[in-house]
Design a binder for these strands. Structure first.
Length: 852
RNA sequence: GCCGGAGUGGCGGAAGGGCAGACGCGGCCGACUUAAAAUCGGCUGCCCGCAAGGGCGUGUGAGUUCGAAUCUCACCUUCGGCACCA
């Protein structure tokens, strides 16, 4: 720090220089262990603040700062309220990018990951954030992933994990994917964007569909509505009925097979003019007539190859072929033809539908395409039953009744539906049922850099779980991971060949690893006891500290991480590890910082903003405040540094008014003088009022995460101080109080500069140093913000015409008299008598209503 | 197509039934300086007007209200999510 001695009597203060301040305080905080949380301290209320742990891609970008620095401000704010705050951090360290980088650069994925983590630790520290590094979790460490394996085996034992062979989504880079990890109509991989295809593979699943109904219940969760809506839609609960059709006898088969369909519209049963099975439906080959067999098989083969790739949109023209067999409608015995078509999905409902073209758009376009009959059975009020159907009538409207439906004609649709199901239910041909879109979670991945799934395949014993004492199944370090597109573990003989734990015979290890979303589904429980070796979590600490009080992170995880986390918590509960039903009590989704081009930041686009550079130029405090000031936190937006100078200037002014209150600015003719009409006493009261009003508003803004207005209000208060700087009130008790409040309010958001100025104030008064971050959040003095007079806007017919300054406690009748006496009001009344005079908000505003 | 969010100055945004545009950026003018930078002060929604003042203004159109950026309905634009879920 350069301290140039000057000849003047008063030593000139040095300029605000973040670079010389910030590292010093970061080191000091670290040294004092200010942010190590004593999890066993229950003398204070606990506050578990969690922010989504980063993937160690190598560099922190400005988006990480955007989520993490306001989260840190929340932590600091809560600490100033006497809460025992736990803000841990860790790394989501398994995953594809490490493996790809390893293949590209011929290095070990572990070395690549660990080097990145080291760099990101440094970058995270440069934020000045109060992470408790002692609790750090790195998921690629055996200490962590062995518990993934432990959980898996618990789930296996409880029937919550199972292996099944079916057509799964396959990404050429990532291997198999869970359903929610395939995006878009063109079916691409959520991570790498590659087109996904179907493969028949035996894979491991977690039975999350067990929790479908429970997951729909958000009671007690303070989550953003859009996330709850997205999850609700994803789970896709649908109430309806299962109806049993039977196959009709014909020349080549005796019939009598049951064909179950799921429908939400049992009321339209009389309108079923054909049936459609998914191409994968198990009865397809049984039912296909000999003369149709070739065509059917060709269609099935084509559907299999095309299914997920070519079904581009709902607009695609429907395809299908008839099986050459009929089904019998249970309600009226009618024979209707059975078709197969790929618009019926094997994985939803029963994989078969009754087609009611008059009342379903998809069935309608299929019927049109293949010339199948269309029969109206629900008629809106005023429709003639036998009018031609030009469009599927799907809506529900008051007054609609059934037609062409035998004994049910004339009944309202909903009543008729219930009666039809009840009638068929008598002999077991119908039941009400509920169907979900949610599928079980496919967790197998054919990649190296993940948690090995701890099972062994024995020729004699079949699937054998790895015994607990053999955990963890370690990822071998030196494998040939360079790629033939096959899992490197499958080529590692030492890993692959094991003895069966049961019969000691030759056996083979599972080579699939777990979806990395398994790692991120319970890491916040591990933060509470990262070193624990006897089990995955410390039950006592989990009971005390979870659910997490506040979780912050992006909304892009709505139906992935944020849903898996809820599912995993429920599974952990059901195997007796924890008692909690839900992981996160309150969730906040910050917006996303886009590149300057408005696109998502990515290295390949070259629009990534490097915070290290900005830290060097402006300091962490400026960046923290600028990101908070940009706009509402949940909004995000394209990165534009154009306003950053303004925020930096603000901190300069805070620096100036704090350290040099008597300075008189040369450029301002009024500098150093009190404003006209004010004396020292009124100026001091005005400063005090401004400070306490700001405190009231800023407190509310911190509570609501309205950081942009919080910063604006601190700027306003600072501007008030700048206006009085060098005048008679500078340095008075009221001035000092305002400065003290300003620094305390600024402390959570800009922790370094406020700490520096705080220490200088203490030193200036000869007091012992104590960190500003261990101070208590100040209380508003209500008496400081009451005014003697106030300004009342006056409207005539809703338009602002005047403002009156009146005594604060003015009587309403007196206020009305003053308002009507106003020359401007008189002018706009133009001689008419007012019809009404409305005093809004207890006289905060007056509106004079007149008709002319 | 369905579900959800958002439309306010040149720009980021504030106000969420009661003074539209807080705060900041940018711009213009000025002070300080030999000069520039930095810093400081003033002005800055649009239109008419020398001014006083007036008119118009929160995506569009209707409505509710004494009063609407804010509530209701319809539409337009835009950003997310879903992808034939029977």
């Amino acid at each position: 720090m350069s301290q140039t001695a000057e000849p003047q009597a008063r030593t000139r203060i040095e300029r605000y220089d973040a670079a010389s301040i910030e590292p010093r305080w970061q080191a000091r905080w670290d040294e004092l262990g200010l942010y190590r949380t004593d999890l066993h301290d229950d003398s204070r209320p606990k506050f578990y603040l969690l922010t989504m742990y980063p993937y160690p891609s190598g560099d922190l970008h400005i988006g990480h700062w955007y989520i993490k620095t306001p989260t840190d401000a929340i932590a600091r704010y809560h600490r100033m309220h006497g809460e025992n705050v736990f803000l841990p951090i860790g790394f989501d360290a398994f995953g594809l990018p490490a493996e790809n980088a390893a293949i590209r650069n011929n290095i070990n994925p572990r070395d690549w990951t660990m080097a990145n983590i080291e760099n990101m630790r440094r970058q995270l520290r440069s934020m000045g954030a109060t992470f408790d590094w002692e609790a750090e979790v790195v998921t690629c460490e055996p200490d962590y992933y062995r518990w993934n394996q432990w959980f898996f085996l618990k789930f296996l034992e409880a029937g919550l994990a199972y292996r099944a062979t079916s057509a799964v989504d396959w990404c050429p880079n990532d291997g198999t994917l869970a359903r929610e990890q395939v995006e878009g109509a063109d079916r691409h991989c959520w991570r790498c964007g590659a087109k996904v295809e179907k493969r028949d593979l035996p894979q491991w699943y977690l039975r999350v569909t067990n929790y479908a109904d429970e997951l729909l219940d958000f009671t007690g969760l303070d989550w953003p509505e859009p996330i709850k809506t997205q999850q609700t839609n994803w789970i896709g609960r649908s109430e309806g009925a299962e109806l049993v059709f039977t196959t009709a006898p014909d020349d080549h088969q005796p019939g009598g097979h049951e064909l179950r369909v799921f429908t939400t519209r049992p009321d339209t049963l009389f309108g079923a003019t054909f049936m459609v099975l998914a191409p994968e439906h198990p009865l397809v080959s049984t039912l296909a007539a000999p003369e149709r067999r070739a065509e059917v098989e060709a269609y099935v083969t084509k559907a299999r190859a095309e299914t997920e790739i070519e079904r581009l949109s709902t607009d695609r023209e429907k395809t299908g072929v008839p099986l050459g067999a009929d089904a019998i409608n249970p309600i009226n015995g009618e024979r209707i033809p059975i078709w197969i078509a790929d618009y019926v999905l094997a994985g939803y409902g029963t994989g078969a539908i009754m087609a009611v073209p008059a009342h379903d758009e998809r069935d309608f376009s299929f019927a049109k395409r293949f010339g199948l009959p269309i029969r109206r059975v629900v008629a809106p009020l005023g429709t003639i039953a036998d009018d031609a159907v030009d469009d599927a009538y799907v809506a529900h409207a008051a007054g609609e009744t059934l037609v062409n439906s035998g004994p049910y004609d004339g009944l309202p649709a909903d009543i008729a539906g219930q009666q039809i199901v009840a009638e068929l239910a008598k002999d077991g041909r119908a039941r009400t049922t509920v169907t979900y879109r949610l599928r079980d979670w496919l967790i197998s991945r054919q990649r190296y850099w993940g948690t090995p799934i701890p099972v062994i395949y024995c020729e004699e014993c079949g699937i054998v779980p790895v015994p607990d004492e053999d955990l963890p199944v370690r990822l071998p370090d030196n494998v040939d991971y360079r790629g033939s597109g096959e899992n490197p573990l499958a080529r590692d003989e030492a890993f692959l060949n094991v003895k069966c734990p049961r019969c000691e015979g030759p056996a083979r290890r599972e080579t699939d690893t777990m979806d990395t979303f398994v790692d991120s589904s319970w890491y916040w429980y591990r933060y509470l006891s990262p070193e624990k070796s006897g089990g995955p979590v410390d039950a006592g600490l989990v009971r005390r500290w979870t659910p997490v009080d506040q979780y912050t992170g992006g909304a892009e995880h709505a139906v992935m991480h944020l849903l898996y986390a809820r599912e995993f918590t429920k599974m952990m509960r059901d195997v007796g590890v924890i008692e909690q039903d839900e992981p996160f009590k309150r969730l906040f989704n910050q917006g996303q910082i886009l590149g300057a081009d408005g696109e998502r930041m990515s290295k390949s686009r070259g629009n990534v903003e490097d915070p290290d550079e900005l830290v060097k130029r402006f300091g962490a405090d400026t960046i923290r405040l600028f990101l908070m000031f940009m706009g509402p936190w949940d909004q995000g937006g394209p990165w534009s540094p154009s306003g950053i100078g303004g925020v930096h200037r603000f901190l300069n002014r805070v620096w100036g008014v704090t350290l040099d209150p008597h300075r008189v600015e040369p450029g301002d003719p009024d500098a150093g003088r009190l404003p006209a009409g004010e004396d020292s006493a009124s100026a001091a009261a005005a400063i005090r009022m401004a400070a306490h009003r700001t405190l009231r508003d800023v407190t509310a803004d911190y509570e609501d995460f309205h950081f942009n207005t919080m910063v604006a209000k601190l700027m306003e208060l600072t501007n008030v101080l700048v206006r009085y700087r060098g005048s008679a009130v500078a340095g008075t008790l009221e001035w000092d109080e305002a400065v003290r409040l300003l620094l305390l309010m600024l402390a959570p958001a800009a922790p370094h500069i406020s700490e520096e100025l705080w220490s200088r104030l203490l030193a200036g008064r000869g007091e012992r140093w104590g960190s500003i971050h261990t101070e208590t959040w100040p209380a508003v003095d209500a008496s400081a913000i009451v005014e003697a007079t106030r300004e009342v806007p006056v409207q005539v017919n809703g338009k602002l015409r005047d403002r009156l300054v009146v005594p604060a406690g003015i009587d309403p009748a007196e206020l009305e008299r003053l308002v009507l006496a106003s020359p401007r009001v008189q002018a706009h009344l133009a001689g008419h008598a007012p019809d009404r005079v409305i005093q809004a908000g207890g006289g905060r505003l007056v509106n004079v209503v007149v008709t002319d």
